[in-house]
Write a protein that binds this DNA or RNA. Sequence first.
RNA 1: GACCCCUUCGUCUAGUGGUUAGGACACCGGCCUUUCACGCCGGUAACACGGGUUCGAGUCCCGUAGGGGUCGCCA
Length: 444
Amino acid sequence: MSVRVRFAPSPTGYLHIGGARTALFNWLYARHAGGKFVLRVEDTDEERNTPEAINVILEGLRWLGLDWDEGPASNDPAGDSVGDRGPYYQSQRAEIYARRVEELKVKGLAYEDDGAIRFRMQREAVTIPDLICGDVVRELTDREQEQPDFVIVRSDGKPVFHLVNVVDDIEMGITHVIRGEDHLSNTAKHIALFRAFDVEPPQFAHIPLILNANGSKMSKRDEGASLEGWQQAGYVSSAVTNYLSLLGWSPKDDSQVMPLSEIIERFDLPQINRANARFDLEKLQWMNYEHLRALPMADYRERAVAAGVDFGGATEDYIAAALGTCQDKVKQVDDLPTFCSFYFTDEFDYDEAMAAKAFAPDNKEPFARLREVFAGVEDFTPEPLEAALKALAEELDVKVRVLVMPARCACTGVKVGPSLYDLMAVLGRDRVLVRFDKALAAMS
RNA sequence: GACCCCUUCGUCUAGUGGUUAGGACACCGGCCUUUCACGCCGGUAACACGGGUUCGAGUCCCGUAGGGGUCGCCA
């Protein structure tokens, strides 16, 4: 039987990073096994359900590149969907649940209790076969011993999570349930329900949770908990999926930075760890940098625009050359505007601290000489520029920085940026000389 | 209160009875350099604790401690 997995989020208005990883693991497994990835929206809690809340999930998954083979085509629960096992919004499946509840009643496995309907739960321990945790024997808790029969339909007629979850997994032919470990204990109820419907339960794989850096449970407000934050901060989605894939799963060798295609190929359930993992912002940042620098220039350019870089009227060649000097040095695309804006405008202020040092009176004479040398350099490219500058430093018997600092400040106004020689070559002789003159004037 | 899961450097992890306990992020030092958010080289740093089993235990068993989860007419 071919693999069918599902991601079943509830539209709460945000996509939790842990939920994103659950979706990723399901998707990875489907793609690895050549199976189907189903998206089902558990929108039974109507209060929080809004088209916007659903969009957050849909957009989040799209951004991550987790395309679903079956599921909603839009954020309209009553709208179109892809796949023949729909509807994929639980709010549209009331009849199916009613039919299944009736089935349990007929079998004598469900009964009414003050208006609600309870499932006749078994009283013995349930063994949960789990691909990651092994066989887990779940005993009843003290409270469950008092009342083992749990509610499957509320007195207002709405079916409860445990029921709809199992019914949908049956109807949708789900073969593997990959979900957070917070559902492990609940699985006893689910297995009992599957049996009540005379259906062999799917394979279960409970994956460890993602915790905060301090080990506490990650909730909505915690730093980094919402996927939207990463989307807005300009993170590269492949970096996020790469980072997330390494939380709980391991390729078992020293691989760290991998393209999605490689992760798909190597991903499998038995390699998943059983221990919870903590979210490490710094490693994600590093991972993002690794993916950012590997981006094709066209993509990088697009991100630069999104980050707010104004290219002015620059030509494409100039833009590509300019961004090329930044790509392997800028860690976050958010930093790009301050890093490269000097390329696209002549109107910038000198950083005070930088200028105070760079434009010190003692530097003026050497810097003026540098201007003349650069005016005469035959080939205005990095290597000749560097050679010329160093030759002059030697001739004047000054440290290289005496020439470099004012040159950088004159060209960019700030102390951090691309390699000085590269940046001057991109700027071109005319622009560099104009900026040198302006700086010289500021030095007197 | 009960039940379930987990425990290797600060963090993510490799390790399936015999290893100098490996890698990555972070950190520290050096080199290069432009004073940098590039790069290169090097370093500090871990088997939670206590009992077993075994010639030998990070690896197997039991216990303790700690962390997480669940027990709802939320999902």
